[in-house]
Nucleic acid binder design. Sequence first.
DNA 1: CCTACCGATCGGTAGG
DNA 2: CCTACCGATCGGTAGG
Lengths: 193, 193
Amino acid sequence: MSPRRTVAEARQTRAGIVRHGVDVASVEGLEGLTIGRLAADLGMSKSGVLGHFGDKETLQLAVVELAADEFWRDVWEPVGAVAAGLPRLRAVAGSWLRYLTSDRLPGGCFFMAAGPEFDDRPGPVRDAIAGAADRWHRELLHQARLGTVTEPEQLVFELTGVMLALHAAHRLRRDPAAATNAARAVARLLDRP
Amino acid sequence: MSPRRTVAEARQTRAGIVRHGVDVASVEGLEGLTIGRLAADLGMSKSGVLGHFGDKETLQLAVVELAADEFWRDVWEPVGAVAAGLPRLRAVAGSWLRYLTSDRLPGGCFFMAAGPEFDDRPGPVRDAIAGAADRWHRELLHQARLGTVTEPEQLVFELTGVMLALHAAHRLRRDPAAATNAARAVARLLDRP
DNA sequence: CCTACCGATCGGTAGG
DNA sequence: CCTACCGATCGGTAGG
């Protein structure tokens, strides 16, 4: 409660702000994430929140970075031990499907909301979001090539489309068949290389 | 310039506000669309803008309605004469592809941005967006069934995924191969019923 | 990490 | 369709 905290305490406070920021942004959007909202939710003053970042853009960048780390941990790390190439591609598709239907974040996949929100807003935040999307795209491409797929770029494009369609059908149209449609589409893409 | 306009003039003013609102919302988002921004762009006062709608939500609903009309006109109407079933499905896929790469709206497809933005915001605006998505989904399904496709729901799901992947690859990652990848994916879906 | 501010902008209203 | 407002909230700063 005292205004002077240790460095470790301050680090923890900052981490808590960013963690909650990912949740809020997944619902309200990354621009709709306001400092006042975070402060109220966390029982802090606005300047107490802002002091950890300096300005809103730096806060947004921290939120994008944590969201990317968490996506990697939830989707890629569980399948890191699976044999590289097609087996790992199948495994990551499976954990990606589970992630999208698990409602792990209150507003669904952070990046499927932040992408369309920021694709027309040039700047460091857009660059960070696009950079994360690029890294996953290249990683998928790498596994597809190791699997000696005939058209790796085509496969990764279509696989990404399945995940986007799942997100849209599940969260906007609330289509109960979304998950099975997506699983079938993945099988058609990856079970006949 | 006089404060009293004819009914026809007022209707035109209103239509101009909504038309510009679609453009602004395609870039800034439907929540980022502000009355002050519209007023400044159109050389009007805020209350002059708001007077046509009463509140922001009614303005947002008018914007969603016009965006849906324009999407229908740009994507469906040009292929309305094509034979129903698979031929029309192929034709609408083609005009949908062209629409997404034409940069017809300054911020890309309105609904691919508004969907993720509002899927977690219950209310009439979300309902209007989901309703439009539902209508197109059912129309695609109808044509697929007329084409005696073996799994119509699966086909429409995957076709939608291709369009979402095109939008993401084109606008966020700026992948120059996006359009050809999408065209190839559509061909694989529709040229072997 | 707080209180106490700042100017700008938000959606919206009153009244003409 | 305007001017002239309203309270609330925005991002951000000063100073402790």
